[in-house]
């Protein structure tokens, strides 16, 4: 009786593992698909193209950061 029960528990675990693995694979596929999309959009050349029509261009000068230094 115990043997049968333990056999069933194992079977249930296997089914659950299979289900979760499938879920994991699907989530991973979704993650990679979306990540590639976002990576492509992040590329400087793509951003430049998209904002060109709004009148935004890459700066010809570097950013000036003015830092205040505390004098003793």
């Amino acid at each position: 009786m115990l043997m049968v029960r333990s056999g069933h528990i194992t079977d249930e675990k296997v089914l659950r593992i299979a289900k979760l693995s499938k879920q994991e694979r699907e989530l991973r596929a979704e993650y990679i698909a979306l990540r590639s999309q976002s990576m492509k959009l992040k590329l400087a050349s793509n951003v430049e193209n998209k904002v060109k029509d709004l009148g935004l261009f890459p700066s010809k000068e570097p950013v000036h950061i003015i830092k205040e230094v505390k004098e003793k």
Binding site: P62, H64, K67, E71
Partner: peptide, 17 residues
């Protein structure tokens, strides 16, 4: 070179005085 140059910020320090 230009892109690297514009991407590197120039840090100027000033003291309150």
């Amino acid at each position: 070179a230009e892109k690297v140059f514009t991407a590197t910020p120039i840090i100027e320090t000033v003291s309150k005085r």
